[in-house]
Design a protein around this nucleic acid. Structure first.
Lengths: 342, 342
DNA sequence: AATCGCCTTCAAACCGCTTTGGATGCCGCA
DNA sequence: TGCGGCATCCAAAGCGGTTTGAAGGCGATT
């Protein structure tokens, strides 16, 4: 059942039927109702491919996922972000298209998405310092929103980010207030923008209290269980071990916990831990009582909001770049306590 | 730059240019090269939307992701599957479209995908017992491949699955051989087909050795850290605690480990644990030496293979249902050992 | 009564590609 | 010399919608 057939059954022209269905004003209300009823009765759904060609819009948003090397976006955080963004797209009749490409072809992927007209815009994930993708998308002319920010980029662009610096600053201050002075940072890879900001927050808080950051207590690696475990273990073996840990993610946190337990240290009593909690659906930080004290910010909400921002930009004739900074909340769990006196 | 313009620049008809670019035989080789060169020079990429309308094919595969209730597909396992499938799609110039929908609208989502012509086929995730989606897709006429199987369904359909029953049977036998008799099962939700099969494997292995399965040692819940922790803790508090655990996933396994450590039990010495390891990129089970002894099967490979199967089915005129059963390997880690004599 | 303007509706062009059904020219062969 | 056959190329008709430009009908205004 297509438009032409539906129209002929109704004794109307395709023009009128199309307009009736799309809510244009120049059609009689009685006619519109007749058309709507017939469309429902015959289970008519306009062909997306035809709409796309006729309107010149793809009605789809792209997400490029580079794979196959050191840093992979394919992680639990990404899954939750996608879920949030996907909800927004569905509500607005947009498709979400994921392009999984070898990471040396990421740039080509964006260009191709644009020139072949597969999408109306993209969301840029995991921005790095001086991220080249921003300039690229700028001159390709593909609307985009960055999840995060890219330090060093001068071009104006739209982004949605969590205030990572402030979150880690507050967490550090909280530990300092508890009497901790040897606070370790188990950070993500520090070419990632958010990791840089987190470190800044941590360093700022320490220096504000007159404590010189100790490079031996600052690790930077992928946010996996293994990496968290390794970093924590190495630090615990040092002569002067830290009394508190600031950890980049729930998953790294599990690794840190493993190292602590292996060392016979009890979290919350012998040693304190604060993690950053993306509030992942499959990785909840406890329920009533959080396992870890944490800086929390739902990445799923971020996905929802970033998608809304992008759709808004696409719908606007001459859009101005939009920015939005979300604050993480500091939630109390069982993993922190006063620094034990030696 | 579109086909018509490119053609006129070349002094050729669009027909010939189209054929030259698509490798049809009825065009002079010299002409073809001239066309190819011009296409490259002018950076011509055919408009996907037009190709789709003209050919009647969507060149896209759909994945429907239901959200917002108890069981959510949005999990790390799903992310890895998607990554695998996405690689296959990219290689074959297909788009991957994800539909995130409230789970009471899942059926409508499939129907809409079909009637609006957004995709050429779909992959069905997380099949349940007597899964209604199989009959639905059958009569809607949308090609599909199921990741897993659906016990109770009589219709023929294509699927790709891991031999979950055998994997858990082997794992159980392995523990029995080590002298364990009180073996606990921390399973996924048992309306999920794979969870049913795993339980069957476990029960079969026990009964084959004359051991009656103890309902108190069989838990079934979501595969999260929390759920794993709760199930294990409850069992450890019983008078006759288990000496070994069989756990449904890496994440549940972390929860079980937390419970064990809380109870002061050392994995591999006081108590044995075997998990199922989907070999997730961000949830590696150790590296050189696995943390957990495990039944391992890469869900990413599964994604790759399932996608290949689907593309093959779509390309075949009168396809017959395809099946493929992957075997999990049993890998030795540090979490198992002989049953300690009391 | 003629004209104007609004409300409805329609025919046809268009989006950018594929594909069918010729058309043309050239060669070889009878 | 005439003709079949092959190699090339093209015009035009789709694909299934949207959108422009125009037209018919009718009440209101002059």
């Amino acid at each position: 059942m297509n438009l032409k057939e539906l129209a002929s059954r109704l004794g109307l022209s395709p023009t009128t039927v199309s307009r009736a269905l799309n809510g244009y004003p120049e059609v009689n209300e009685a006619t519109r109702e007749r058309v709507m009823a017939a469309a429902k009765r015959h289970n008519y759904h306009p062909n997306t491919r035809a709409i796309r060609l006729a309107t010149g819009r793809a009605m789809a948003i792209g997400h490029v996922i580079p794979v196959a090397t050191r840093h992979e976006i394919v992680n639990p955080v990404f899954a939750d972000f996608i879920a949030g963004a996907g909800e927004t797209y569905s509500r607005n009749d947009y498709d979400m298209v994921l392009s999984v490409v070898p990471d040396d072809q990421e740039e080509a992927a964006y260009r191709s998405l644009k020139s072949k007209g597969n999408v109306d815009g993209v969301i840029v994930h995991a921005p790095k310092m001086d991220d080249p993708r921003i300039a690229l998308l700028h001159d390709v002319g593909l609307p985009f929103v960055v999840h995060g920010r890219a330090t060093g980029t001068t071009l104006p662009y739209s982004w949605l980010d969590v205030n990572n610096r402030r979150a880690f600053q507050r967490a550090t201050e909280f530990l300092l207030d508890l009497g901790h002075t040897r606070i370790a940072l188990v950070n993500g890879l520090e070419f990632m923008d958010f990791a840089i900001r987190r470190r800044t927050g941590y360093v700022d808080a320490l220096t504000a209290r007159g404590i010189a950051p100790d490079p031996a207590l600052m690790a930077s690696d992928e946010m996996t269980e293994i990496a968290g475990y390794r970093a924590a273990r190495a630090m615990l073996l040092r002569a002067h071990r830290p009394t508190a840990f600031l950890v980049a993610s729930m998953i790294s946190g599990m690794g840190v916990r493993r190292a602590l337990e292996e060392a016979g240290l009890q979290m919350g009593r012998d040693i304190s831990v604060i993690i950053h909690d993306d509030d992942l659906s499959y990785m909840k930080n406890g329920d009533a009582v959080p396992i870890f004290t944490a800086t929390r910010s739902s990445v799923r909400d971020a996905g929802r909001l970033a998608a809304e921002m992008l759709l808004d930009i696409i719908a606007t004739p001459n859009p101005v770049p939009q920015q939005r900074l979300l604050e993480a909340e500091l939630i109390m769990g069982q993993s922190t306590g006063p620094c034990p006196r030696p």
